[in-house]
Design a protein around this nucleic acid. Structure first.
Length: 296
DNA sequence: CTTGGGTCCTGTGCGC
DNA sequence: TGCGCACAGGACCCAA
């Protein structure tokens, strides 16, 4: 089993942690300058993205699913998705060198894959780095958010009031697909990714291969609670990591969390008195980690 | 409508 | 030591 280099992919908790860190650096300030170093990431950037952002004030930062939105005083919202490998670095003028590793790979002022750099009016610099370029940015009228292509159709926020077992039951009714796949579908629940789906299923003792429509209500209650618990714990862990982020070069987006099953193939299950061994299977081309003994 | 598979992208780690 | 390849996966896209 390959190692993940100690990092985790940005799912809801990591994105929320990034939003929390970016808010004090951006909210209430104007964008003095924006340096866009390529045409796009996963998709081309929106037309005139730089002109539409430069000079605008940032009213506030919000999160929806795995997206961060910066509401601008122009009436537009700037949407950012970290994809798989997106990182954000915050440098303040007092930090000394604005960024370590200058002149790397021919980039005069930064590191390889620094794609967008924005400078706030107080000199704070925020750098978006994304080697795999699965990330995305867009601009849309804030009032038209409901019809924004990437946001329309998203399911409820798992930490919001409308998410519960009854909602899962309604979404899963009659569905034969494995519950693992159903939880990854952002139309059912917004913000879960491979890691936290595995963790939540383990906590609720549900097999990832079980058809989504064949889970008893009391087990869906446990699942909904497990989803909320694992996300909340990861957000809390990210928040505590934030206090030390300067020591990590100000790099945000990857906060190590203690996983019970993810990337733990062949290691012992941590359910008390289970003594099972964590298995790795592939579902829809993705790794699933679970305990065949205590997850049914 | 539902479901599954392909695709994009680069860094990393492993086997030969 | 160096090379090639599998793998990591979020979300769209399309085919059956």
């Amino acid at each position: 089993m390959r190692r993940l280099n100690g990092g985790t992919m940005p799912e809801l908790p990591e994105v929320e942690t990034v939003r929390t860190a970016l808010a004090p650096a951006m909210e209430g300030q104007r964008v003095r300058a924006i340096d866009i170093r390529r045409d796009g990431l996963r998709w081309p950037f929106p037309e005139n993205m730089g002109q539409r952002i430069e000079g605008r004030g940032v009213l506030r930062l919000r999160r929806r699913a795995k997206y961060i939105m910066a509401d601008l005083d122009s009436g537009e919202s700037w949407l950012i998705h970290l994809g798989m490998s997106g990182r954000v670095t915050i440098s303040t003028p007092g930090d000394g060198p604005m960024r370590p590793g200058a002149f790397v790979h021919g980039h005069p002022d930064g590191q390889a894959h620094d794609h967008v750099v924005w400078t706030m009016e107080d000199g704070t610099r925020v750098t978006f780095n994304d080697p795999r370029r699965f990330g995305a940015m867009d601009l849309f009228a804030t009032v038209d958010e409901a019809s924004q292509k990437l946001l329309a159709g998203l399911g409820p926020e798992p930490l919001g009031n409308s998410f519960d077992a009854a909602l899962l039951a309604a979404r899963f009714k009659g569905r034969r697909m494995p519950v693992k796949s159903a939880l990854l579908d952002q139309r059912n629940v917004a913000g879960l990714g491979n890691i936290y789906v595995c963790e939540a299923l383990w906590r609720s003792h549900i097999s990832p291969t079980r058809p989504a429509g064949k889970i008893a209500m009391h087990r869906l209650e446990a699942l909904a609670q497990a989803i909320r618990d694992v996300l909340r714990e990861a957000i809390d862990a990210g928040g505590s990591s934030l206090k030390d982020y300067r020591q990590a070069d100000g790099q945000l987006g990857y906060f190590q969390h203690r996983f019970a099953v993810y990337d733990r193939a062949a290691l012992p299950c941590q359910t008390p008195e289970c003594a099972g061994e964590i298995a790795r299977i592939v579902q829809s081309g993705r790794s699933t980690f679970y305990c065949p003994r205590c997850q049914r």
